[in-house]
Structure formats: structure tokens, C-alpha cells
């Protein structure tokens, strides 16, 4: 009716849509495109981490835990299910040790994946 007269009408939009590629992805079969800087899984560069605990202090959700026995023996643990992927740890770490990769973290039913030991430093190692 009136919709046909105007250039930007719904009918045009529909015809346009039929001849363009669908926007949805048949997940989990389709391909998932995440941008470069997507805030995904927390990763660490173990060489740089000194166990200072700055990231643990600023983490808003308590997803990071530092078990410190001595200056040379500590364990940095991350609990992905608690993490809000907010990148606060990345900003807090003065050594640039911790950060995001752009891997998507999904839900999991394997308890093993709920605790990630980022760094486990023993006495005597450097």
C-alpha cells in the first residue's frame, strides 16, 4: 500500500534482506568472530609475575587468589567462573604480566576447568 511508494519501506527492507547473507550464525557449527581486543580468558606471562598481589587486591570479584608462603614460593590462582572479565587486573599489574587473550570462555561442567593455576612458583626456581 503506502509502504510501497516510499523508498525506505519495509517491503524494500525485506527484499533487501532476502538477497543478503543472513546475520545469524548456526552456532555451534558456524564460525564465531571475535575482535582483536576481545576480553577473553585470563592468561599470564609467568616470567614477569613476581607475586606482588596488586592484581589480587584490585580484582572486584575475588576471582584471583595468591597463596604466598614466602618471597620465593607462591601460587597465583584464577577462578574463571567468578571472573567478570573486566580487565582490572591487567590495568593494576605494573609488570604487564597478567592480561586477556581473546579466547571465548564458555560455561563448563568440568570442575578441573574452574580452577586455573596461573603461576606456581617453587622455592629455588627463578
Amino acid at each position: 500500500m503506502k509502504a510501497m511508494r516510499k523508498r525506505h519501506s519495509l517491503l524494500d527492507a525485506i527484499i533487501d534482506a532476502v538477497f543478503s547473507r543472513p546475520d545469524t550464525v548456526a552456532y555451534p557449527f558456524g564460525e564465531l568472530q571475535l575482535p582483536e581486543g576481545y576480553r577473553g580468558a585470563i592468561v599470564i606471562n609467568p616470567e614477569n609475575c613476581t607475586g606482588c598481589g596488586l592484581c589480587v587486591r584490585d580484582c572486584p570479584t575475588g576471582a584471583l587468589k595468591l597463596e604466598k608462603k614466602s618471597r620465593d614460593e607462591f601460587k597465583l590462582i584464577h577462578y574463571p567462573a567468578r571472573c567478570a572479565y573486566c580487565s582490572q587486573c591487567e590495568s593494576s599489574c605494573v609488570r604487564g604480566a597478567i592480561g586477556h587473550s581473546n579466547a571465548l570462555v564458555g560455561a563448563t561442567d568440568r570442575p578441573r576447568e574452574l580452577i586455573v593455576v596461573l603461576k606456581d612458583k617453587k622455592e629455588g626456581e627463578d
Binding site: I14, A17, V18, P22, D23, T24, V25
Partner: peptide, 9 residues
């Protein structure tokens, strides 16, 4: 309908 709405259907 899905194709009209840019979906796979």
C-alpha cells in the same frame, strides 16, 4: 520469515 528478518531460519 527468517530470511525476511535476516536470519538463517
Amino acid at each position: 520469515l527468517a530470511r525476511f528478518q535476516r536470519r538463517i531460519g
